[in-house]
Amino acid sequence: MNRPLMVAFDLANQQAAMELAKALGPDGRGKTVKVGMELYYKEGARILQKLQEQGYAIFLDLKLYDIPHTVEKAMLQLARLGVDYVTVHAMGGQEMLQAAKRGLAAGAAESGLPAPKLLAITELTSASEEVVSKEQNCRLSLEEQVLSLAQLAKDSGCDGVVCSALEVEDLRRVLGDDFFYLVPGIRMSDDQVGDQVRVATPAMAHKAGASAIVVGRPINQSAQPKRAYERYLADWQDSLKEN
Protein backbone atom coordinates (compact mmCIF):
# COMPACT_ATOMS: atom_id res chain seq x y z
CA MET A 1 0.00 0.00 0.00
CA ASN A 2 1.34 3.44 -0.94
CA ARG A 3 1.71 5.60 2.17
CA PRO A 4 3.27 8.82 0.93
CA LEU A 5 5.24 11.51 2.66
CA MET A 6 3.90 14.67 1.01
CA VAL A 7 6.09 17.76 0.80
CA ALA A 8 4.17 21.01 1.24
CA PHE A 9 5.10 23.47 -1.50
CA ASP A 10 3.85 26.41 0.57
CA LEU A 11 5.81 28.89 -1.52
CA ALA A 12 5.27 32.30 -3.08
CA ASN A 13 5.62 31.56 -6.78
CA GLN A 14 6.55 29.16 -9.56
CA GLN A 15 10.24 30.01 -9.40
CA ALA A 16 10.44 29.04 -5.74
CA ALA A 17 8.48 25.86 -6.41
CA MET A 18 10.73 24.81 -9.28
CA GLU A 19 13.84 25.52 -7.22
CA LEU A 20 12.51 23.29 -4.43
CA ALA A 21 11.58 20.58 -6.92
CA LYS A 22 15.10 20.71 -8.37
CA ALA A 23 16.61 20.55 -4.88
CA LEU A 24 14.59 17.43 -4.09
CA GLY A 25 15.99 15.65 -7.13
CA PRO A 26 15.64 15.46 -10.92
CA ASP A 27 12.70 13.06 -10.92
CA GLY A 28 9.41 13.51 -9.08
CA ARG A 29 8.13 9.99 -9.73
CA GLY A 30 7.15 8.29 -6.49
CA LYS A 31 6.86 11.64 -4.70
CA THR A 32 3.76 13.61 -3.73
CA VAL A 33 3.67 17.37 -3.22
CA LYS A 34 1.05 19.54 -1.58
CA VAL A 35 0.06 22.70 -3.44
CA GLY A 36 -1.90 25.00 -1.17
CA MET A 37 -3.63 28.34 -1.44
CA GLU A 38 -0.56 30.59 -1.54
CA LEU A 39 1.07 28.94 -4.56
CA TYR A 40 -2.14 28.03 -6.40
CA TYR A 41 -3.68 31.49 -6.09
CA LYS A 42 -0.49 33.00 -7.51
CA GLU A 43 0.20 30.57 -10.34
CA GLY A 44 -3.04 28.71 -11.01
CA ALA A 45 -3.27 25.37 -12.81
CA ARG A 46 0.01 25.89 -14.69
CA ILE A 47 2.04 25.11 -11.56
CA LEU A 48 0.25 21.78 -11.27
CA GLN A 49 1.11 20.96 -14.85
CA LYS A 50 4.77 21.87 -14.30
CA LEU A 51 4.99 19.55 -11.30
CA GLN A 52 3.06 16.76 -13.01
CA GLU A 53 5.44 16.94 -15.96
CA GLN A 54 8.24 16.11 -13.51
CA GLY A 55 6.31 13.07 -12.28
CA TYR A 56 4.91 14.36 -9.01
CA ALA A 57 1.53 13.29 -7.66
CA ILE A 58 -0.45 16.32 -6.48
CA PHE A 59 -2.34 17.02 -3.28
CA LEU A 60 -4.28 20.21 -4.08
CA ASP A 61 -5.16 21.63 -0.69
CA LEU A 62 -7.67 24.46 -1.22
CA LYS A 63 -10.01 23.55 1.68
CA LEU A 64 -13.26 24.44 -0.08
CA TYR A 65 -16.07 25.72 2.14
CA ASP A 66 -19.11 27.27 0.48
CA ILE A 67 -22.71 26.53 -0.46
CA PRO A 68 -23.17 23.05 -1.98
CA HIS A 69 -23.78 24.24 -5.55
CA THR A 70 -20.61 26.35 -5.60
CA VAL A 71 -18.49 23.56 -4.14
CA GLU A 72 -19.88 21.02 -6.60
CA LYS A 73 -19.03 23.19 -9.59
CA ALA A 74 -15.59 24.02 -8.21
CA MET A 75 -14.81 20.34 -7.66
CA LEU A 76 -15.92 19.56 -11.21
CA GLN A 77 -13.21 21.95 -12.43
CA LEU A 78 -10.55 20.61 -10.05
CA ALA A 79 -11.21 17.03 -11.12
CA ARG A 80 -10.24 18.03 -14.68
CA LEU A 81 -6.74 18.97 -13.51
CA GLY A 82 -5.58 15.40 -12.92
CA VAL A 83 -4.70 15.93 -9.26
CA ASP A 84 -4.69 13.06 -6.79
CA TYR A 85 -6.18 14.57 -3.61
CA VAL A 86 -8.40 17.57 -2.86
CA THR A 87 -9.83 18.99 0.36
CA VAL A 88 -13.03 20.44 1.76
CA HIS A 89 -14.00 21.55 5.26
CA ALA A 90 -16.13 18.97 7.03
CA MET A 91 -17.88 21.81 8.86
CA GLY A 92 -19.60 22.64 5.57
CA GLY A 93 -22.01 19.82 6.36
CA GLN A 94 -23.32 16.69 4.69
CA GLU A 95 -25.02 18.36 1.74
CA MET A 96 -21.85 20.25 0.83
CA LEU A 97 -19.65 17.18 1.22
CA GLN A 98 -21.93 15.10 -0.98
CA ALA A 99 -21.99 17.89 -3.56
CA ALA A 100 -18.17 17.92 -3.57
CA LYS A 101 -18.14 14.19 -4.27
CA ARG A 102 -20.63 14.59 -7.11
CA GLY A 103 -18.57 17.36 -8.65
CA LEU A 104 -15.40 15.26 -8.59
CA ALA A 105 -17.19 12.31 -10.17
CA ALA A 106 -18.64 14.48 -12.94
CA GLY A 107 -15.34 16.23 -13.68
CA ALA A 108 -13.44 12.95 -13.75
CA ALA A 109 -16.00 11.38 -16.09
CA GLU A 110 -15.88 14.34 -18.47
CA SER A 111 -12.09 14.40 -18.59
CA GLY A 112 -11.51 10.65 -18.60
CA LEU A 113 -9.27 10.93 -15.52
CA PRO A 114 -9.46 9.13 -12.17
CA ALA A 115 -11.40 11.07 -9.55
CA PRO A 116 -9.17 12.63 -6.87
CA LYS A 117 -9.53 11.39 -3.30
CA LEU A 118 -11.83 13.71 -1.37
CA LEU A 119 -10.37 14.51 2.05
CA ALA A 120 -12.31 16.46 4.67
CA ILE A 121 -10.61 18.85 7.06
CA THR A 122 -11.64 18.15 10.66
CA GLU A 123 -9.89 20.62 12.96
CA LEU A 124 -6.71 22.36 11.83
CA THR A 125 -3.55 21.24 13.60
CA SER A 126 -3.11 24.86 14.73
CA ALA A 127 -6.36 24.59 16.74
CA SER A 128 -6.23 23.93 20.47
CA GLU A 129 -8.82 22.81 22.99
CA GLU A 130 -9.26 26.45 24.00
CA VAL A 131 -9.89 27.57 20.42
CA VAL A 132 -12.54 24.90 19.89
CA SER A 133 -14.25 25.73 23.17
CA LYS A 134 -14.02 29.51 23.38
CA GLU A 135 -13.80 30.68 19.76
CA GLN A 136 -15.85 28.04 17.98
CA ASN A 137 -18.23 27.75 20.95
CA CYS A 138 -18.21 23.98 20.51
CA ARG A 139 -19.83 21.94 23.27
CA LEU A 140 -17.64 18.94 22.43
CA SER A 141 -14.05 18.39 23.43
CA LEU A 142 -11.46 18.73 20.67
CA GLU A 143 -11.18 14.95 20.32
CA GLU A 144 -14.95 14.51 20.23
CA GLN A 145 -15.30 17.28 17.66
CA VAL A 146 -12.72 15.70 15.36
CA LEU A 147 -14.44 12.31 15.65
CA SER A 148 -17.85 13.85 14.97
CA LEU A 149 -16.60 15.63 11.85
CA ALA A 150 -14.73 12.55 10.63
CA GLN A 151 -17.84 10.41 11.05
CA LEU A 152 -19.83 12.99 9.08
CA ALA A 153 -17.20 12.94 6.34
CA LYS A 154 -17.32 9.17 6.00
CA ASP A 155 -21.13 9.07 6.08
CA SER A 156 -21.14 11.72 3.32
CA GLY A 157 -18.94 9.72 0.96
CA CYS A 158 -15.53 11.31 1.55
CA ASP A 159 -12.48 9.13 1.03
CA GLY A 160 -10.70 10.28 4.15
CA VAL A 161 -9.93 13.10 6.55
CA VAL A 162 -7.14 15.46 7.49
CA CYS A 163 -6.45 15.34 11.22
CA SER A 164 -3.60 15.42 13.69
CA ALA A 165 -1.70 12.28 14.72
CA LEU A 166 -3.24 12.60 18.17
CA GLU A 167 -6.67 11.63 16.85
CA VAL A 168 -5.83 8.96 14.27
CA GLU A 169 -5.85 5.95 16.57
CA ASP A 170 -9.33 6.73 17.88
CA LEU A 171 -10.60 7.50 14.39
CA ARG A 172 -9.33 4.19 13.02
CA ARG A 173 -10.97 2.35 15.89
CA VAL A 174 -14.35 3.90 15.11
CA LEU A 175 -14.24 4.45 11.35
CA GLY A 176 -12.11 1.49 10.29
CA ASP A 177 -9.13 0.90 8.05
CA ASP A 178 -10.93 1.57 4.74
CA PHE A 179 -10.56 5.32 5.20
CA PHE A 180 -7.63 7.64 4.44
CA TYR A 181 -6.04 9.46 7.39
CA LEU A 182 -3.77 12.30 6.28
CA VAL A 183 -1.68 13.87 9.03
CA PRO A 184 -0.02 17.30 8.79
CA GLY A 185 1.78 19.01 11.67
CA ILE A 186 4.79 16.70 11.32
CA ARG A 187 7.95 17.73 13.13
CA MET A 188 11.03 16.00 14.45
CA SER A 189 11.49 16.36 18.19
CA ASP A 190 14.25 18.96 17.74
CA ASP A 191 12.36 21.11 15.19
CA GLN A 192 10.52 24.36 15.81
CA VAL A 193 6.75 23.79 15.80
CA GLY A 194 5.83 27.29 14.55
CA ASP A 195 2.07 27.87 14.66
CA GLN A 196 1.30 24.17 14.89
CA VAL A 197 -0.17 22.93 18.17
CA ARG A 198 -0.90 19.22 17.70
CA VAL A 199 2.35 17.83 16.27
CA ALA A 200 4.05 14.45 15.92
CA THR A 201 7.15 12.86 14.41
CA PRO A 202 6.78 10.66 11.31
CA ALA A 203 7.25 7.54 13.42
CA MET A 204 4.62 8.69 15.92
CA ALA A 205 2.17 9.36 13.09
CA HIS A 206 2.71 5.91 11.67
CA LYS A 207 2.30 4.24 15.05
CA ALA A 208 -1.00 6.07 15.44
CA GLY A 209 -2.19 4.77 12.05
CA ALA A 210 -1.64 7.61 9.57
CA SER A 211 -2.16 6.73 5.90
CA ALA A 212 0.09 9.60 4.80
CA ILE A 213 1.88 12.60 6.28
CA VAL A 214 2.56 16.16 5.14
CA VAL A 215 5.81 17.94 5.95
CA GLY A 216 6.13 21.65 5.23
CA ARG A 217 8.54 24.18 6.71
CA PRO A 218 11.16 21.69 7.99
CA ILE A 219 11.74 20.80 4.32
CA ASN A 220 10.66 23.77 2.21
CA GLN A 221 12.50 26.29 4.40
CA SER A 222 15.59 24.15 4.92
CA ALA A 223 18.95 25.24 3.55
CA GLN A 224 19.29 21.63 2.37
CA PRO A 225 15.80 20.47 1.36
CA LYS A 226 16.89 17.09 -0.01
CA ARG A 227 18.74 16.20 3.18
CA ALA A 228 15.75 17.30 5.27
CA TYR A 229 13.39 15.30 3.04
CA GLU A 230 15.53 12.19 3.33
CA ARG A 231 15.68 12.58 7.11
CA TYR A 232 11.91 12.71 7.42
CA LEU A 233 11.44 9.98 4.84
CA ALA A 234 13.81 7.67 6.70
CA ASP A 235 11.87 8.10 9.95
CA TRP A 236 8.59 7.46 8.10
CA GLN A 237 9.85 4.48 6.10
CA ASP A 238 11.65 2.89 9.03
CA SER A 239 8.40 3.01 10.96
CA LEU A 240 6.59 1.40 8.00
CA LYS A 241 9.13 -1.44 7.92
CA GLU A 242 8.42 -2.11 11.57
CA ASN A 243 4.74 -2.64 10.81
Rank of each mutant, 00 (worst) to 15 (best):
I67W: 08
H89G: 06
A105H: 09
Y85A: 11
E95Y: 11
K101N: 15
Y65R: 09
G103K: 07
T70K: 07
V83H: 01
K101S: 15
D84L: 04
A79F: 13
V86N: 04
M75H: 01
E72L: 06
Q98I: 07
L64A: 12
R80G: 14
G93F: 11
V71T: 04
R80C: 10
Q77H: 15
K101R: 15
V83E: 01
G107Q: 00
A100S: 13
Y85V: 14
R80Q: 13
A99G: 02
I67M: 11
Q77I: 13
V83F: 00
M75C: 07
A90H: 05
L78Y: 11
L76A: 09
K101W: 10
A90K: 03
V88T: 12
L81I: 01
A79M: 14
G107E: 05
M75E: 00
A99P: 00
Q94Y: 01
K101H: 15
V71A: 07
Y65L: 15
D84G: 09
A74H: 04
K73D: 11
G107L: 02
H89Y: 08
M75P: 00
D66N: 05
A106S: 15
L97H: 01
A106L: 14
L104F: 10
M91P: 10
T87M: 05
G82Y: 06
Y65W: 12
A100L: 11
R102S: 04
A79K: 13
Q98V: 08
D66E: 04
A79N: 15
P68Y: 11
D84I: 03
A100P: 12
T87F: 03
V71P: 02
V88G: 07
Q98P: 06
Q94E: 10
R80A: 14
R80V: 09
Y65V: 08
L81V: 00
T87K: 04
Q77S: 11
G107D: 03
A99S: 03
A74C: 12
V86I: 03
D84K: 10
L76W: 10
E95V: 11
L97F: 00
A74W: 05
H89I: 05
K73N: 15
G92S: 06
A99M: 05
G92Y: 05
Y65N: 13
A99V: 00
E95T: 12
V71M: 06
